[in-house]
Measured scan of single mutants.
Amino acid sequence: MMAYMNPGPHYSVNALALSGPSVDLMHQAVPYPSAPRKQRRERTTFTRSQLEELEALFAKTQYPDVYAREEVALKINLPESRVQVWFKNRRAKCRQQRQQQKQQQQPPGGQAKARPAKRKAGTSPRPSTDVCPDPLGISDSYSPPLPGPSGSPTTAVATVSIWSPASESPLPEAQRAGLVASGPSLTSAPYAMTYAPASAFCSSPSAYGSPSSYFSGLDPYLSPMVPQLGGPALSPLSGPSVGPSLAQSPTSLSGQSYGAYSPVDSLEFKDPTGTWKFTYNPMDPLDYKDQSAWKFQIL
């Protein structure tokens, strides 16, 4: 009977010793046993002879290597770790002494450095960015050149030099007046198309007034536009458009034309069986010896 009264063996659950049927240790109110408190290391007290050895090595170098620390530790009968900690504390003490010396050398008012006064946003004049500046400075420094007289040679050079070769001289006033084509001369031969040399188009003023001019072949195509416009036809070669000034309004060009419109200028042929003959000019830059190549039959 006494065997049943004795408590059973101890069981360990999660490293906790349980005594038989008792489960009081598993209750929430019972805390787990805490780790033992780490003991504080005792402070090391250095003797005068030990301090002399350490100070002598510190005077040589503030960062001794492990071999120098072990050698000193053997002399003063201390572990190497204590020597390492002593050098660490000695360097910190040396830095603190240097900072105190710097503070003593500075004057009393030198510690508080005078800061520059901050400028207020409204006091300083700042350039306004509302208006974009002129990058080319046209509004201040540029002045347009004065327009020359209508009959000045410089204007003629600016007008005619675009179309004339570089080897030719500017046309005088008398020749510029001949550039304007007359109405009857352009409409006299509506079906004849003559190819003149390129030099005649640039230099010869008579080429624009003769039936064999460069633009005589364009007349049949330009004249039928007159009834559609409801007024006189516009002429690209009329009046002052080739003269001194090219800047004319469309209203000033509306009254200039080749001449009176005639039914002869239409595109319809009077004789459907007729042929169109292209007159060959020996001055043509295209060297075609066979003139029969310039004739064709309209079917």
Rank of each mutant, 00 (worst) to 15 (best):
Gly151Ser: 04
Lys93Gln: 14
Ser143Met: 07
Ser12Lys: 07
Pro9Lys: 09
Thr123Ile: 07
Met225Asn: 01
Phe58Cys: 13
Ile138Ser: 07
Ser152Gln: 05
Ser169Ile: 13
Ser262Ala: 09
Val30Asn: 07
Ser212Asn: 04
Ala158Gln: 01
Met2Trp: 12
Tyr288Val: 05
Ala29Val: 12
Ser169Cys: 03
Gly178His: 14
Ser161Thr: 15
Leu218Cys: 01
Tyr191Ile: 06
Tyr4Leu: 05
Pro64Gln: 14
Val160Tyr: 03
Ala198Cys: 02
Ser19Gln: 04
Ser249Ala: 04
Gly274Ser: 03
Leu186Gln: 00
Pro285Ile: 12
Gln248Val: 12
Arg176Asn: 03
Ser139Val: 04
Pro7Val: 13
Tyr32Gln: 03
Leu136Tyr: 03
Gly110Val: 01
Asp140Tyr: 03
Ile298Gln: 00
Pro79Trp: 13
Leu218Asn: 00
Ala260Ile: 13
Gly178Ile: 14
Cys132Leu: 03
Asp290Gly: 13
Leu146Lys: 11
Ser81Met: 04
Val131Tyr: 08
Ser204Gly: 08
Gln105Ile: 03
Ala15Met: 15
Val131Trp: 06
Leu179Tyr: 03
Tyr191Val: 02
Arg98Thr: 08
Gly148Arg: 09
Ala117Ile: 01
Ala192Asp: 00
Ser249Tyr: 10
Gln62Ile: 10
Ser199Lys: 10
Ser152Glu: 02
Gln39Phe: 13
Leu267Lys: 05
Thr251Leu: 07
Gln99Asp: 06
Asn77Val: 13
Ser150Leu: 08
Trp163Glu: 01
Pro144Thr: 04
Glu55Ile: 10
Pro240Gln: 09
Leu74Gln: 03
Pro21Val: 13
Lys118Trp: 01
Val66Lys: 02
Leu222Asn: 01
Pro244His: 07
Ala196Leu: 11
Pro224Tyr: 12
Leu237Ile: 05
Trp86Leu: 14
Arg119Asn: 03
Pro263Tyr: 10
Ala17Arg: 14
Gln104Leu: 04
Leu136Val: 11
Pro79His: 07
Pro170Tyr: 05
Met193Phe: 13
Ser12Met: 13
Gly239Val: 10
Pro282Gly: 04
Gly137Ala: 05
Pro7Arg: 05
Pro240Ser: 04
Ala56Gln: 05
Gly151Ile: 09
Ser257Ile: 11
Thr129Pro: 04
Leu286Gln: 04
Pro236Trp: 14
Gly110Thr: 03
Pro33Arg: 09
Asn281Cys: 14
Arg69Thr: 15
Gln39Leu: 10
Ile298Val: 02
Ser164Thr: 08
Thr251Pro: 05
Ser81Trp: 11
Leu286Trp: 04
Gly178Ala: 05
Ser167Met: 05
Lys118Gln: 01
Pro170Lys: 06
Gly8Trp: 09
Pro227Thr: 08
Met225Pro: 01
Pro170Thr: 07
Lys93Gly: 14
Leu78Lys: 01
Gln175Arg: 13
Leu171Cys: 05
Gln291Asp: 00
Lys289Ser: 02
Gly217Met: 15
Val30Cys: 05
Ile162Ala: 00
Phe296Ala: 00
Asp140His: 02
Gln28Tyr: 11
Leu246Arg: 04
Ala35Lys: 08
Gly8Asn: 02
Cys94Leu: 06
Pro263Ile: 13
Tyr11Phe: 13
Ala29Asp: 02
Leu74Asp: 14
Gln104Asp: 05
Val157Lys: 07
Gln50His: 07
Pro227Leu: 15
Thr187Tyr: 10
Asp219Gln: 13
Ser216Cys: 09
Ser188Asn: 05
Gly231Lys: 10
Pro244Phe: 14
Gln50Thr: 13
Thr44Glu: 13
Ser206Gly: 04
Leu218Trp: 09
Thr187Phe: 15
Pro205Gly: 10
Gly239Pro: 05
Pro220Cys: 13
Gly209Glu: 02
Tyr221Asp: 01
Gln28Phe: 15
Val226Ala: 02
Ala73Lys: 13
Phe87Lys: 12
Asp219Ser: 13
Lys277Cys: 12
Glu168Lys: 11
Arg90Asp: 14
Arg48Asp: 14
Tyr191Ser: 00
Ala177Gln: 10
Leu146Phe: 07
His27Ile: 13
Lys270Ser: 08
Ala260Asn: 03
Ser81His: 06
Leu222Lys: 03
Ser34Gly: 07
Gly230Asn: 04
Val264Cys: 05
Ala117Val: 09
Phe278Tyr: 01
Ile298Gly: 00
Ser128Cys: 06
Tyr67Leu: 07
Tyr195Met: 02
Pro170Leu: 06
Ile76Val: 10
Phe215Met: 02
Gln100Ser: 06
Ala56Thr: 06
Arg90Asn: 12
Ser150Met: 07
Trp86His: 14
Lys295Phe: 14
Asn14Phe: 14
Leu57Ser: 13
Ser203Gln: 05
Thr194Asn: 05
Trp163Leu: 02
Pro133Leu: 03
Lys102His: 01
Arg37Leu: 04
Arg98Ile: 03
Ala192Arg: 09
Val131Ser: 07
Gly255Asp: 02
Pro135Glu: 09
Ala198Asn: 01
Pro205Met: 09
Ser22Ile: 15
Leu78Asn: 14
Lys289Leu: 12
Gln291Thr: 10
Gly243Lys: 11
Asp65Thr: 08
Pro21Met: 13
Leu57Asp: 15
Ile76Leu: 11
Ala114Glu: 04
Lys295Asp: 00
Pro170Ile: 08
Arg82Ile: 06
Thr187Ser: 07
Cys94Asn: 06
Val226Thr: 04
Ser210Ile: 15
Ser245Cys: 07
Glu80Ile: 06
Pro147Leu: 06
Ala68Gly: 10
Gly151Thr: 03
Pro149Tyr: 07
Ala260Pro: 05
Gln103Ile: 05
Gln228Arg: 14
Gly20Thr: 12
Ala181Cys: 09
Glu53Gln: 10
Leu57Met: 11
Pro147Ala: 04
Leu218Arg: 02
Leu16Ile: 12
Ser238Leu: 08
Asp284Ser: 13
Ala29Arg: 06
Ser49Glu: 10
Cys132Pro: 07
Pro211His: 03
Asn14Asp: 01
Gly217Trp: 14
Ser252Pro: 07
Arg40Ile: 12
Gly217Glu: 05
Leu18Val: 03
Glu80Asn: 06
Gly274Pro: 03
Ser210Thr: 07
Gln101Trp: 03
Glu173Met: 11
Ser204Pro: 05
Ser167Ala: 08
Arg37Ser: 03
Tyr11His: 00
Ala166Gln: 00
Tyr11Gly: 00
Ala156Trp: 13
Lys102Gln: 02
Ala260Phe: 15
Val160Ala: 00
Pro184Phe: 13
Val66Leu: 03
Pro263Glu: 03
Tyr67Ser: 08
Val23Ser: 03
Asn6Gln: 09
Ala117Leu: 07
Gln297Leu: 15
Lys93Ile: 13
Glu42Met: 05
Ala192Glu: 01
Pro282Ile: 15
Ile298Asn: 00
Val131Lys: 06
Phe58Asp: 15
Gln62Glu: 03
Gln97Ser: 04
Asn14Glu: 02
Lys88Pro: 15
Gln228Pro: 09
Glu53Ile: 03
Ala59Cys: 02
Leu16Trp: 09
Ser245Thr: 11
Ala92Val: 13
Gln297Asn: 00
Arg115Lys: 05
Ser12His: 06
Val157Leu: 04
Lys75Thr: 12
Val264Asp: 01
Ser266Asn: 01
Ala117Arg: 11
Leu51Asn: 14
Leu136Trp: 08
Cys94Pro: 15
Ile76Gln: 12
Pro21Ser: 05
Leu299Trp: 06
Pro135Lys: 09
Glu55His: 06
Lys75Tyr: 11
Ser81Val: 01
Gln228Leu: 15
Pro250Gly: 03
Ser150Tyr: 11
Ser204Val: 09
Thr47Glu: 14
Gln103Arg: 14
Leu16Ala: 00
Asp65Phe: 14
Gly209Lys: 12
Pro64Ile: 14
Ser199Thr: 04
Gly183Asn: 04
Tyr261Ala: 03
Gln96Ser: 04
Asp130His: 12
Phe215Ser: 01
